[in-house]
């Protein structure tokens, strides 16, 4: 019973996706099914079939709610690449929108992986959803393995510090972790800086109720204007920068790595400032 119902919902969602993306893009998305086994999943649990259904609401949000505009998506090189972006918005909608952008706008479409927080696998439903749409727990081993098989990996070096940003800190990049730079050096991977403009206003939060976060085991518990951290229909602009190549030792001192990381951070901040200057308003 339940299975039939879920199959029906899946089918409906699938058709919704197909209507939104059009027949030509649909074919090209279908071609992404590459490493699946007889049960339709790749070794990491990514399932294209499931994804094309489950992502329908995100395609809708991309087109009609956040009305995402992308700039320079063609700069993302083929083969292994680390996509490094600012992070904000209480809910990781920025990650979803970057992922959808590469499915809908990139040529050929690219199914990216993002590195999710270690607490995600302990959340029911969310953990399954994330795994089936290709998202991976952010351990260095996972990242290395995927880069070695030439995948595109999205990393938010601000992590939860970025996600839980409060209103006064919007568009100010928080501390970047150094892990991504080590992996880039180790696996000789180019870095594409990304700036997402629009997400930082989607759920304005004024306070982080830390005791509540602790109680629930969440990384933060922001109180937003809307009560829940539901995103407002802000207009998204996603800027892709030129690929940056770094050389050096992966096991170098933190201070050396930090210099390289600052180059990436500067590139992102530059695009953020540019984007903020260019836009006429938060919602349009």
């Amino acid at each position: 019973m339940l299975e039939q119902l879920s199959d029906k919902v899946k089918q409906e969602l699938r058709e919704w996706t197909e209507r939104m993306v059009g027949p030509e893009r649909k074919e090209r998305l279908q071609a992404l099914a590459r490493t699946g086994n007889e049960y339709g999943v790749d070794p990491f649990g990514f399932n294209l079939d499931y994804s094309l259904s489950a992502l329908a609401p995100f395609f809708w949000l991309y087109r009609n709610y956040h009305r995402v505009e992308t700039f320079g998506v063609e700069k993302v090189p083929k083969g292994r690449v680390l996509l490094i972006s600012n992070h904000s918005g209480q809910l990781p909608m920025d990650g979803a929108m970057i992922g959808v952008a590469l499915l809908l706008e990139a040529d050929p479409p690219r199914a990216i992986r993002s590195m999710v927080e270690k607490w995600v696998p302990s959340l029911p439903y969310v953990s399954t959803f994330m795994a089936r749409v290709g998202q991976i727990v952010g351990t260095p081993e996972n990242c290395r393995r995927l880069l070695e098989s030439d995948e595109a990996i999205l990393v938010f070096p601000e992590g939860v510090r970025g996600l839980g940003k409060l209103w006064p800190q919007r568009y100010q990049l928080q501390d970047f972790g150094l892990g991504f730079m080590r992996l880039a050096l180790e696996t000789d991977t180019p870095i594409v800086p990304i700036a997402v403009v629009g997400a930082e206003e989607q759920s304005p939060a004024l306070v982080d109720v830390k005791p509540m976060a602790k109680l629930l085991g969440f990384p933060s518990f922001p109180l937003t204007v809307t009560g829940l951290p539901l995103p407002l229909p802000t207009k998204y602009r996603i800027y892709f920068g030129d690929p940056l190549h770094f050389t050096g030792r992966a096991d170098d001192e933190d201070s050396e790595l930090d210099k390289k990381v600052r180059t990436v951070k500067t590139a992102i901040q530059g695009m953020l400032n540019q984007g903020l200057k260019e836009r006429q308003g938060v919602f349009w």
């Binding site: 270690k118 351990t139 081993e141």
Partner: peptide
Amino acid sequence: SPDNSNFLT
């Protein structure tokens, strides 16, 4: 464990 990598060596 929830923080396991997908493939442990």
